[in-house]
Every structure is written in C-alpha cells, then in structure tokens.
C-alpha cells in the first residue's frame, strides 16, 4: 500500500457564521509525524474534532487507508484506527489506570452483554488478557504508572495524566494517533521525558503515524518531519520546521503584523 494513511481534502466547518476550519488539506503517510502549530483559536483542535468524528464537517472529506470515513460517528472512526488525546486531558478519573487502558482497547475486544452473562469464562478471560496487555503498555510508557496501575486515574499529577492518555490511545492499536497539546501543563523536564516517550513508542510501533498539535517549540523542533501552520482555520504553510519558521506569513500569525515587518 503506497497511498497516504490519512487524507483530508478541503475540510471545512462552519458554526453559524463563523468558519472555524476552512478548506484544509492534509495528508499523512505511514510512520510519519506531522505537527500542527498555530495561534490560539486558529482551529487546530477543531480540525482534530472533525477528523475524529466529534464534529461533522460542513464540507470536505476524510479518508483512512483509502476508505471514506467522513462524517461517521466518533466510535466508528476510533474503531477504524484513529486514536486521540484531548487538550484538557479527559481520563476516566473514577477508574483505575488499568481500567482506563482496558477501555482504550474497547474496539479490539468483542464481548457483549450476552457473552458476559452466558459465557462469563470467555468474557472474563478476554478482559484479563486485556488487563495483562494494559499492564505491559503502562510499563512501556512509564514504570511509575505501572507501579500505580491499580490506583484511580483522578489521583494522578498532570504529567502522568498525559502519559496515561497516550497509553490509552495506544491501546486501541491505531493507525493514526492524534495528540492535542501533549506538553501543556508540563515543565521542561516533563516535556523532555515526553519527547523521549514519543520517540520510544515510535521505535516500538514503526508503522504508526502521528499528528501532534503543539505549542512548545522544543517539541516541535525535536519530533516531526513536517509542520503545518494553521491560522484563522486555514492552512498558511506546510513543510519542514526549519523552512516553515522562515515563512513571513507564519511570523505574522505568531508575532503580529508589525513585529514581523520590523
């Protein structure tokens, strides 16, 4: 298979009169890392919401592995192989870490109500196996999380919440993983650890593609092969970070017009 894993064409959404995302094209190959940057309110998260099926696009299309997933409900898109994290982490705070990761495997496990009631051994075995894998996944992401795997997710500090969210997203064995500002709320040391984590999972799962929304320029410089800049809902630049940062329009968007001209 040579085509892109994920391809969005002319993706747009309007809320009333406001055009939040305007005709964005996006293409991602297997194993690639794409970073999306742009000022606050530029429509980056909205783009994620469009791809992951939380919002229905007003126009445009999204294809995963050549299959149209445009406008499908979020749970189908997750099952098709797009996992994500959220800007303000949304864990299942009243459940344990293991539970959180096992829930991430929802679409890779099968037991339904009747299985649970009538074939309890089978359903239980499946869940135990999932919990086993969840433990391994947690150990991979952070030995510390593994240690605490039977405690409640709500008790975790901010940096660990992000890690757990990434573990949960990985649990669904996705083709594409979308991280929404993974470093927000982290100090420098945490961010370094995060960059390391991401490098490690990239090595661990070579075919997995990433889209990362990020503000921290260190992370942007360290990770991606390609950077895409969004402002006012539209793509204004795309390419290697070194090139993109020289782009006049990007500087305007980030620094304001006057500063860029000065």
């Amino acid at each position: 298979m040579s085509g892109p894993v994920l391809e969005a064409r002319n993706l747009s959404i309007r809320f009333g009169g406001l055009v939040a995302v305007a005709g964005v094209d996006l293409s991602l190959s297997a194993g690639e890392v794409l970073c999306i940057i742009g000022p606050n309110g530029a429509g980056k998260s909205t783009l994620f919401n469009l791809i992951s099926g939380i919002y229905r696009p007003s126009s445009g299309s999204v294809h995963l592995d050549g299959r149209a997933i445009t406008g499908q409900p979020a749970h189908r898109i997750a099952a098709a192989g797009i996992a994500r994290t959220f800007q303000s982490s949304r864990l299942f705070t009243d459940l344990t870490l293991v539970d959180n990761v096992v829930i991430g495997m929802h679409c890779r496990t099968r037991s339904g109500v009747l299985d649970a009631l009538l074939r309890p051994r089978h359903a239980r075995a499946e869940l135990e196996a999932a919990a086993e894998r969840a433990g391994e996944l947690l150990r991979l992401v952070s030995p510390d999380l593994y240690q605490r795997r039977h405690t409640l997710a709500g008790a975790l500090p901010q940096a660990d919440r992000r890690r757990l969210e990434i573990a949960r997203a990985l649990a669904s064995e996705p083709k594409v993983i979308m991280l929404d500002e993974p470093s927000s709320g982290m100090d420098d040391r945490d961010t370094d650890a995060l960059i390391e984590d991401i490098h490690m999972t990239m090595a661990e799962r070579p075919g997995l593609s990433y889209i990362i929304i990020e503000h921290d320029m260190r992370l942007v410089a360290a990770l991606p092969e390609r950077v895409m800049v969004i402002d006012y809902g539209a793509k204004i630049a795309e390419g290697p970070f070194a090139e993109v940062r020289q782009d006049r329009r990007v500087q305007e968007a980030y620094l304001g017009q006057r500063a860029a001209h000065a």
Binding site: I54, A74, H75, F92, T93, V102, C107
Partner: peptide, 25 residues
Amino acid sequence: RLHDSRVGLAWNALRCDELAARCQG
C-alpha cells in the same frame, strides 16, 4: 458478570466522560 466485563467498563466510561468514551470506540 456485567460489572467485571467489557460492558461494565464501557458503562463506567460513559458515566465519567461520554465524549471521551466515544473516542475510545
């Protein structure tokens, strides 16, 4: 049986955060 199953977990997930639950499939 339901509590200790994938179904019970899915219910717990949507109890806590429906949108996040949807994004887990």
